Computed example of a mutant assay.
Amino acid sequence: MRKPFRDNRDRRSRGKGVTTRHYKTYLLNKPYGYLSQFTSEGNHPGLKELLYVPKDVYSLGRLDRDSEGLLLLTNDPSLNQRILHPRNHIAKTYWCQVEGEFSDDAIRSFNLGVTFSIKGKAVTTLPAQVKRLDNVNLWERNPPVRFRANIPTSWIEATIREGKNRQVRRMCAAVGFPALLLVRWSIGPFDIDGLQSGDVMEMPHGEFLQKLSKYEI
């Protein structure tokens, strides 16, 4: 079921005849299988199947269809550069279930930077923070994750400050621990704590800007 928000239209300042824009900001816990755009493509549903928001709201960045977790939605174009520009190094933290017991060598590789190939070109990431996680308790995924019999799995928390294509998945594969499930837990000071899969929360825009400004200091 889609979660409705009333359309917040432009209002005119009393006595001045000037149109004042009221910006909107949302935190969405994107479920597995959904695109990071509002328009559906073929059998792949877009965000319009999940929620109603003003028509000018869009996703700040993207999250792969087979990944889950935090998407920031807004109609404030000034946030594009603040959130997305690589030079700002906004931290993005992921919880990832991998095949095998994530090793100390793999942790060291993440800490130093991992090299993998994108379209035949070798790419080395910036150093990333990573740690093992225990007792992870998340929502049930639909469809369930497919496991290989007799092969253990483990969970890690990885924090990166760049956004190469499918970066965390590529990093995990490069160090020998393929990702089975990937959830983006946070972007900068914003996270999905308390949001179930498919939940969306509107954050007052002033509060959003205040939290972002404190993070940027």
Rank of each mutant, 00 (worst) to 15 (best):
T93G: 00
S103E: 14
I151Y: 09
H89V: 09
I156S: 04
I187F: 09
P127N: 10
S117V: 12
P127K: 07
T159P: 01
N111M: 15
F110R: 05
K164E: 13
V98W: 05
I151G: 06
W155S: 03
D104I: 11
R146H: 11
Q196G: 15
V200Y: 01
S103H: 09
R108E: 15
T159M: 00
K92W: 02
V145D: 03
V136I: 03
S186D: 10
G163A: 10
T125E: 05
R169W: 02
F102V: 07
C96T: 13
R148F: 14
R166D: 10
I90T: 13
G113N: 01
I160G: 00
A174S: 14
G176W: 14
K119F: 13
G163C: 11
G113D: 04
P127Y: 13
A91Y: 08
I151F: 11
L182N: 01
L126W: 05
F147Y: 15
T125W: 05
A91F: 08
E162K: 06
D199C: 12
E157L: 02
A91C: 05
E202A: 06
C96F: 04
G206R: 07
E101K: 09
R87S: 15
D134S: 14
A158P: 06
L133G: 01
E162T: 08
P189H: 06
R141G: 07
R148A: 14
Q97H: 03
D105N: 13
A179Q: 04
D199A: 12
G100Y: 10
A128F: 01
R87P: 09
E140C: 09
K119D: 15
L181D: 14
P144L: 13
W155K: 00
P204E: 04
D104C: 07
G198P: 05
G100H: 09
I160H: 00
D191A: 05
E157S: 00
V183E: 12
S186M: 05
S103Q: 11
R87H: 14
D199V: 08
I160W: 03
E162F: 11
I90Y: 08
T93V: 00
R148C: 12
S186C: 04
A174F: 09
F116H: 06
R169E: 06
V175N: 07
V98K: 02
P143N: 03
R141K: 11
V175T: 09
S109C: 10
E162I: 10
E202V: 05
A158E: 04
A122T: 12
W95I: 00
E202Y: 05
V175K: 05
T125Q: 03
T115I: 06
